[in-house]
Design a protein around this nucleic acid. Structure first.
Lengths: 208, 208
DNA sequence: TCAGGCTTGTCAAACAATTAACAATGTAAG
DNA sequence: CTTACATTGTTAATTGTTTGACAAGCCTGA
């Protein structure tokens, strides 16, 4: 479809998607890059340039049809098909993420929870029974797993990631505070809470 | 101290800090930008350029002293003083974040938890009693609050943010999936899990 | 149906970030 | 003490991103 879209552009797409979703809820049918730029506090030029990476979705003299554009961005972001997610590490954060995926996004489905702690075996979180990490192999071989969320301590992140990728998992959503070394073709999306907090703390310090 | 450091640089500083911390644990005393670049998979040039935004921490022919550089970056990131954090919205994610802040980072201290649900009143999470949102005003007036974490639904994010900033809170760690409109001088650090997941899903789709 | 006004898609210019190159300077070994 | 080498800090070149400008073309009201 497209080739070599810059990461900067891709990071902005979910934000467009969100604003368009809100417009849709508000019953807005059409929007110009100018109106949208005012709402989103970005330049109209950037919006047009970003969208044109993927195709010409607008119409001169009219603007963009909100529903159409929303659907198109949805397609781009892979919101048209179901993504099956498993999660490894059912601690506090793991449970929160499990619930988050369960309720927040329709195109993602949590299908398995795994932990290393035997005392958690069989307990239910968000309606799913917790399994042991050594059951991962069986599970992945018998289920379609698109994404594995890693909410584990940084010490175990590397071995678990290796195991998962060896079993064919192609996308990791990594919450462990470590950079994972994965084979070619595997995607890692990091959520480094610690980095985020430190950035905040830097900005606070700078302000003073 | 410094002026106009680019956001791109700042985003990288916590990563340097982490790697230096690991080197320190491993008992490494000195490191060259070249060695570090190999470990971190970035260019040596970028490392030198980034660090030089804040001062000349290295020595020709020697490299960087790990302990010294670690401490300096710590200072830059505001890790030398305690940051007092409160959290609003003690749901699944809120509890996870409360625990996270409690155990993960020494320079941040969770000092208050707030929720709107009366049934949660007085319950303890991570050793802290949950208070009601209408007690926020009293609390902020009588305690030093550096950061407020917002783990609430997007509908309540805007009014709560307004209330907090009116009460003088200068930094928000926002987990709600909405862009907050805050007064000049208030810092917002967003953690948009949904955006992160969608970026992942985009990359999966693209790969196929 | 037509003219005037919008608004896009796109090209070019301005700006920002990254990488490369290298002179200056310190290290370290003999 | 001296020389060969390592490595920084910094300047210059390159690459990438954002903004500005405008022709082309559709919309809308008369």
């Amino acid at each position: 479809m497209e080739k070599g879209i810059s990461p900067a552009v891709i990071r902005r797409m979910p934000r467009y998607y969100r604003y368009l979703g809100e417009l849709l809820e508000d019953g807005v049918e059409r929007i110009s890059s100018n109106d949208l730029s005012r709402r989103m506090h970005v330049t109209a030029s950037q919006i047009r340039q970003d969208l044109n990476n993927f195709g010409g979705f607008g119409q001169q003299g009219y603007g963009y049809n909100v529903q159409f554009l929303y659907d198109e961005i949805g397609k781009i972001l892979g919101q048209t098909h179901m993504n099956h997610v498993i999660l490894v590490g059912v601690g506090n954060l793991g449970q929160a993420i499990a619930n988050y995926v369960r309720f927040e996004k329709l195109s993602f489905k949590m299908i398995g929870l795994f932990d290393i702690d035997p005392s958690k075996k069989g307990k239910e979180v968000s309606g799913i029974k917790i399994q042991m990490v050594d059951e991962l192999e069986d599970f992945i071989k018998t289920h379609q797993v698109d994404i594995a969320a890693l909410t584990i301590p940084k010490e175990s992140a590397e071995p678990i990631a290796r195991k998962l990728t060896e079993l064919g998992v192609k996308a990791l959503w990594n919450f462990a505070h470590v950079d994972l070394d994965v084979p070619e073709g595997v995607i890692v999306e990091n959520v480094h809470l610690s980095d985020s907090l430190m950035t905040l703390s830097y900005n606070i310090t700078k302000m003073k």
